[in-house]
């Protein structure tokens, strides 16, 4: 179905010490829904090529795509994309991919709870940005787990906020000064305090590493959220 399209790097933004946002120019990009991802193909001089999938980080904007890539130590692709890959360099992309882990602003009017572990925030940020771009009044809550404040992706943008969006950072190792919650992994209490009550029947999107998603989805079910309203997207530590 989708054809491979040529993508040129327009701009790179360092998000944290280990994650970069790549702004790509992709003539012919058909548009996407927030939460979808894209297949990326890299080809070496000798013809060897390999592919990875990355979540789309931004709202649709013509031929412009944004991917946020977390550098995986010893990875095959992410060290290149977050390092040597420079403005004007090329990759190929195909997509958008995925029709389940998406938020459809025209159809979904129920409250939304976003639960992110680490760089799992990327597709959820696309939902936040589409909500803002559409001027949607759908109430959003984002609970984002990070090791410490230096690992917050999109921290400045989320701190500026958006009416009807509540963002809570959960720090697992190091909490910044003034934060009352002691550092530690996400708990049922965190989701009860900062998520939506189950009887509001929110749609819940959970994205992060496998262990985080297993835990968070289990806590949400225990809090009374119906499994059919919990959508998950997981990524393993592999590949990169």
């Amino acid at each position: 179905m989708p054809r491979w399209l040529t993508a040129a790097l327009l701009e790179r933004r360092e998000e944290t010490a280990t994650a970069s946002t790549l702004v790509l120019d992709v003539p012919g990009w058909p548009g996407h829904l927030p939460g979808q991802h894209v297949d990326v193909r890299l080809t070496a001089e000798d013809g060897y090529s390999t592919q990875r999938s990355y979540s789309l980080a931004a709202a649709p904007d013509g031929d412009r795509l944004e991917l946020t890539v977390q550098r995986v130590p010893d990875g095959e692709v992410s060290p290149y994309l977050t390092g040597e890959f420079s403005v004007g360099d090329l990759v190929e992309v195909r997509g958008p991919v995925g029709g389940w882990f998406v938020w459809r602003p025209d159809e979904q009017k129920e409250p939304v709870l976003l639960v992110a572990g680490g760089s799992g925030i990327v597709p959820l940020m696309a939902m936040v940005r589409v909500r803002a771009a559409a001027g949607s009044r759908v109430p959003f809550r984002l609970v984002a787990s990070v090791r410490g404040p230096a690992d917050r992706l999109y921290g400045a943008e989320l701190d500026r906020g958006s009416p009807g969006l509540d963002t809570t950072w959960i720090h697992t190792r190091t909490a910044p000064p003034g934060v009352v919650r002691a550092p530690g992994r996400l708990t049922a209490q965190d989701l009860a305090d900062w998520g939506w009550p189950a009887d509001f029947e929110p749609t819940v999107y959970v994205c992060g590493p496998t262990g985080f998603v297993e835990t968070a989805a289990g806590l949400l079910v225990a809090l009374g959220h119906h499994p059919a309203r919990i959508r998950t997207e997981r990524f393993g530590p592999s590949g990169g």
Binding site: T6, T43, A44, T50, E84, F85
Partner: peptide
């Protein structure tokens, strides 16, 4: 072919054949 300048990548171990577009993981 669209070449990603400076990308070298990793080849699968000899004797291992991957389907197109796949890479090997041990996880």
């Amino acid at each position: 072919a669209v070449i990603s300048r400076g990308f070298h990548g990793r080849r699968p171990e000899p004797g291992r054949t991957l389907p197109p577009g796949q890479y090997e993981t041990r996880d």
